[in-house]
Design a binder for these strands. Sequence first.
DNA 1: CACATCACTGAAATCGTTGTCAGAGAATGA
DNA 2: TCATTCTCTGACAACGATTTCAGTGATGTG
Lengths: 340, 340
Amino acid sequence: MATIHDVAARAGVSPATVSRFLRGQRVRSAEAVQAAVDELGFLPNIAAQSLKSGRTRTIGVVVPDITNPYFAAVVKGMESVSRDHGYRLLLANSDESGAREADLLADMARQVDGIILAPATEHEQTPLQLRDSGIPVVFIDRDLADGESFDAVLVDNRAGGRLAAEHLLALGHTRIAMISGGQESTPGRYRRDGFLEAVSAAGVEIPPELDLIGDFREERAYQLTLSLLSLAAPPTAIFTANNLTTLGALKALHDMRVDVPGQISLIGFDDLDTGPLLRPPLTVVDRPMTEQGVLAMRLLLHRFDDSQTRDLPRRIVMDIKIVERASTAPPGPQSPEPHR
Amino acid sequence: MATIHDVAARAGVSPATVSRFLRGQRVRSAEAVQAAVDELGFLPNIAAQSLKSGRTRTIGVVVPDITNPYFAAVVKGMESVSRDHGYRLLLANSDESGAREADLLADMARQVDGIILAPATEHEQTPLQLRDSGIPVVFIDRDLADGESFDAVLVDNRAGGRLAAEHLLALGHTRIAMISGGQESTPGRYRRDGFLEAVSAAGVEIPPELDLIGDFREERAYQLTLSLLSLAAPPTAIFTANNLTTLGALKALHDMRVDVPGQISLIGFDDLDTGPLLRPPLTVVDRPMTEQGVLAMRLLLHRFDDSQTRDLPRRIVMDIKIVERASTAPPGPQSPEPHR
DNA sequence: CACATCACTGAAATCGTTGTCAGAGAATGA
DNA sequence: TCATTCTCTGACAACGATTTCAGTGATGTG
């Protein structure tokens, strides 16, 4: 509760001198001031500092869901670099809702120096307003439809979708299902686009009943997988658009006692900590996680002090690769029995 | 960038009137003010509000590691409640380091209204100082050695340890290993205490080479499990102290091609999203996660407005239970071959 | 010795908001 | 009609820090 005035009084100097001492300037009464600070346990009032300086040393982070291991890892990466630079993290979940996200951003606008955002949909208006009002915004994982003018750390989702498709095609699958994420987000759309591209390039056709649109969540993927199994002619392979979707699909396959990959192969997008320990060990399209957070935070911090590059957006696209484990195999002789 | 003065000027009233309007008081020029607010896109400067009011409407949350699914779920629960009450979340990871935690708390002290903390060790001083300086602190998951005077949301870790031990004993195991967490934290200590209590109550002895102290992290658990397997007489069952530890142990068992539960049974503490999908599906001691976060946040918010109960600490101890899946079984005839 | 230079200092203004206070009109009652 | 309430108003002073500005005294130079 001690203020800079209390410290000044105790040290017998003016508040201005204490302030100067605290920010490292040379001061005649250094020892006395230091002593007063220690004795009173003085800590500066951040609100007052922010008000005066116009900088909060706080970064706003908005992700769809912190319990998604991908975003947890990303946030961890961000925090490790932000702390080293004296910045704090204000965290919020958008729950994949554009409306909630808009609220969050509006709320953050006046209390953070910059924002890192995984936009819920690719048609958000708020980031544009934010940038217009002078708050740097960096996208992570997801982009706006016309986001090329923003800083961003992304992966080539289209290539990821292609990779998954080519892997399954190479194994000999032709009846392949995909459970996509929401098509209003760039990863949802591009992963599907890449997948469909590669498949049709190979002359394979995906009928509508195998081209399912989910929402990146486990529950919906579970239901959609069930619907796939109830088909007269179920697929011999499934590609799921993210880690949660993969889990939902795998749970449904387990519950229905489908042998993976004997009856159906499964390839997911995004690895899991437990990926190698699952039944079966998962084949996935993998990408850096923590490192994406690190890079996004660096990008943002650059914006703060680097006035040269102020105008050119920096867009980092990270490498993506396939981790082959045991959930994919050539299509087996016995296709799964349809359930009603 | 618009301030309350700009709004006032545009609406032809004084800043005081705008302020009153914004906080819901009746004002003659309501429509004009509202119009000015809309046209200028006015958002209040939080720093100025905090400075004046002394309240930041921000909650500090310090957890050891947000990538631990348990803490991710807890934080999610907290956020859902805090947002409904207009509070924001400042998040930081202590990385299980008491020193780092102290830094974080000192930094937060002047910029949050309250703190929710999973203390890295049970001997922290900082929470006491914080409370003395008037900042409410709620513990989650972990406690201080003498923390009875703090609000807290906990589980009965001792009972959890006992439950695990009794489960293994009932299956007929007598050569049981435990991989504990750090003994400087209450969960680390109590889970082990409960385990040892139950085991010795059954007349079974745990030799030192089976009573291993880890650090709640995956890597260390992996190493300790390997050391267990290299014993002349390896255990027939292992109890691991948290989710990460369980993963480490399971990875080691897989890598060494040990059949679970054929050769060694494994029971963990804390469930995982992927628990049912693992090889084998994990038997675990389970407890509420998101709900603990919800309750902790409610406790903290109570402290803010509920002046009656200001003095009585509220301590919530949540139920804990065993989820039996397939990673535990009676000890088999073939004990694992020792590795060098 | 006079004067310029230097290193440091405190008073005061400021950031944007809220709360206090005295006062201005309008509404009520006698 | 006048007095009394009542509701709403703007001026102004905070909140706690930083920064500018005009010193002040000590040191260096001719």
